[in-house]
Design a binder for these strands. Sequence first.
DNA 1: GCCTTGTATCGAAAGACGTCAACATAGAGG
DNA 2: CCTCTATGTTGACGTCTTTCGATACAAGGC
Lengths: 131, 131
Amino acid sequence: MSKQELGVLEVTGEVIGRDAACCPGLATAPLDDERAAELARVFKALGDPVRLRLLSMIASREGGEVCVCEMTPAFDLSQPTISHHLKLLRQAGLIDCERRGTWVYYWALPGVLDRLAAFLTTTRTAEATQA
Amino acid sequence: MSKQELGVLEVTGEVIGRDAACCPGLATAPLDDERAAELARVFKALGDPVRLRLLSMIASREGGEVCVCEMTPAFDLSQPTISHHLKLLRQAGLIDCERRGTWVYYWALPGVLDRLAAFLTTTRTAEATQA
DNA sequence: GCCTTGTATCGAAAGACGTCAACATAGAGG
DNA sequence: CCTCTATGTTGACGTCTTTCGATACAAGGC
C-alpha cells in the first residue's frame, strides 16, 4: 500500500529548498501544456476543504503519522468519503500510508508540497529579481 | 470592472514575505473549517491547466498586462471558454482587468499568490523550526 | 445612426466530482 | 475457522464544471 500511483511530479521525497529553482515558476515563463497539467492535478487535490483539512491534520501532527480512526470522526462525513479523499491526496503524491495491524496510518510527503511552494514563490522571487 | 467579487482571502495587494507568518500555514495547526474553505477556493482556481497557463501567461508578462486578444488564440478553446476561465481567476482574486478602448487587459495580483506560497512554505518552515 | 471588432454573458450538453449505502477485504482474537 | 472491528472499494445519485454556440454589450470608425 506504501507505493502508490503517484504519477504526479514524480515525488522524490527529498526536500527541495526555496532556492533550488528546479522548476520554472509561475511568473518566469508561460508554462507549457504538460507542466500545467501536472501542476493542475496537484492544485486540484488541494482544491477541496475536506482534503485541505485532512492534509493539514496530517502535516501538523507531531509524530508525523495520523491514524484514519482519528480523522474520520473529525468530519461530518461518512467513512468511505474520508477514505476517498485520502486516496486522492495519495494519488497527488501529497501523502502516503501504511497499514499496521488493524489500523492505517498516514503521513505527509514534503516533496510535492515543497515544489508547489517553490513554484509559487519562485514566481514572485524571480519577478522581483528580474524587474 | 476593476473591482471584482474577490471575496477570497481579501486581497490587499501588499506583498507578504515568506517570513511574515501572518497565517497559520499548512503544518502548524489543523486548519479550521472556514480557512480551509477559503484556501480551497483559490486552489480550485489553480486546479485547471488552462487557468494555470492563463495565469502564468499573465504573471510572466514583462509589462504586467496582457490583452485578451493575445491569450485567446494561444489555446484550442473557444473565446467564451477563455473568458470564463479568466472570470474564475478574477473571482479567486488572482488577477484583475480593465477595459481600454476595444480591448481588455489583465494583470496579476500578487496578494493571494503570496499568501498561498506562505501557506505552503510556512508549512515546512514551521515544521523544520519546531522540530 | 449603422456596421465591425473585441469581449462578456446565457443556456445547454457532456463530463467530472463529492457523497452515501452496501459490500469487500485485512488483521486480531478467540 | 469464525467473528469483530477498521478501511478500502463499488455503484449510484445529485451537483458542480467545462465547454460550446448563440447572443448581448462596448467602443471605434464610417
